[in-house]
Simulated assay, not measured.
Amino acid sequence: MNRRLLLGTVVVGLLAVTAGCSFGPFADDITDEELNESAEYDWETNATATITIEGAEYQAVYDVSNQSELTVYQQGFAGNEPVNVRAVQFRDANGTFVNGSALDVEKQGSETVIDLPSENGTVAYTADTRPKQFGSPVLVEGSHEVVLPPNHQTGNFLFSHVSPGNPEKEVVDNRVHLRWDDPEGNVFVRYYLDRDIYIFGGIVAVLGVVLVAGLIYYLRQIRELERRREEMGLDVDTEDDEFDDGPPPGMG
């Protein structure tokens, strides 16, 4: 009976966790409606891979050469996971576009595979990311550029992290551009708003005031207790007696 109850609890928990998931190993298949979503991409970027972040989603634009497909995946708790891409578009080297469900896009195990109509061209898609951070394995060789949302920054070690370290950094139209010539492994960026620092500083200041006020109150309570003991004649110094090494009473 206990085993059945435990199994039932696990099953219910898994259903609760995976219900409505749009990412990870339990994500649903990509629908034609998602593939056919509209999006405007920067096709004139001069990087091999360009990631433009907008809130909790990003637009990825990849130049591909001599390859028939692009495999898209992300790192999860249990290993690689497919990415739930949408608004997928492909521009051939001659300028011809193939959009949405006209492309063959499907999840295969731990990857999302986009079959390319031509071995040379540019493929773009939109996907979700966590607020104020982006991470992805390097999917193509060549230069990579990550464009942060407006008014967001990197540089404060408490609020940001960039990997690989020391990318080229440029601010264009109030947006930070991070660029790597040929990164390997993974690209990861955690960023922040300027106001986040002020909010954090305000919280620390308030906690500091509360701590100091509590300490003052505690010291005042101790002094008040000592004063009352003195008034009641209970302020007897027993320290010497407690540590007196002399013989017991009646033995001296």
Rank of each mutant, 00 (worst) to 15 (best):
E226A: 15
G165A: 12
T9A: 13
D63C: 00
S65C: 03
D42Q: 09
D196W: 05
Y191S: 03
I222E: 11
V83D: 13
A56R: 13
I197A: 07
E224K: 08
V11N: 02
V212I: 14
D173R: 10
L139W: 05
Y191P: 01
D128V: 04
N151K: 13
V212N: 07
G79I: 13
P149L: 12
V236Q: 09
D241P: 00
E224M: 06
T9C: 11
V187Y: 04
R91V: 01
T96F: 13
D115G: 00
I53V: 15
F159W: 10
A16I: 06
S110T: 14
D182E: 12
A49Y: 03
V147F: 09
A19R: 10
K132H: 14
F26Q: 01
A127Y: 05
T154I: 15
A102C: 03
L158R: 11
G135W: 05
N174H: 07
Q221C: 05
L15H: 08
Q221P: 00
D92N: 14
L139R: 05
F243Y: 15
K169L: 14
Q59F: 09
Q75V: 07
F97W: 00
E111R: 00
S38F: 14
D173C: 07
D29Y: 02
E239H: 10
E81T: 03
R228A: 12
N151W: 14
E231G: 01
V105Y: 04
F188Q: 07
L207Q: 08
G165H: 05
G20K: 05
G55H: 01
T18N: 08
K132F: 14
V123F: 12
I114Y: 01
G155S: 08
A93L: 12
F23H: 09
V162A: 00
V176N: 01
G95D: 10
D181P: 02
F134P: 07
V172C: 00
W180M: 06
E111K: 02
G202W: 12
V236C: 09
P183E: 09
K107G: 00
Q89D: 06
G109R: 00
L6C: 06
V83W: 02
R3H: 09
V204Y: 08
E224L: 07
G252I: 03
W180T: 08
E57G: 02
V204L: 15
P131L: 12
I203T: 14
G100N: 11
E33H: 06
P248T: 12
D244L: 09
D104L: 08
S118D: 15
Y125C: 06
R130Q: 15
L5M: 08
E106D: 10
V171D: 02
G165F: 05
E37G: 12
P149D: 01
R86H: 08
E231L: 15
T126C: 02
F134G: 03
D32K: 13
R190Y: 00
N156W: 11
M232F: 10
G165Y: 06
E141N: 10
D241L: 11
E44Q: 13
S68H: 13
N66K: 09
E141I: 04
V236N: 11
V64W: 01
V88Y: 01
M232K: 13
G250P: 12
R86E: 07
A78H: 02
V61A: 12
A205R: 07
S110V: 10
N186V: 13
S118E: 15
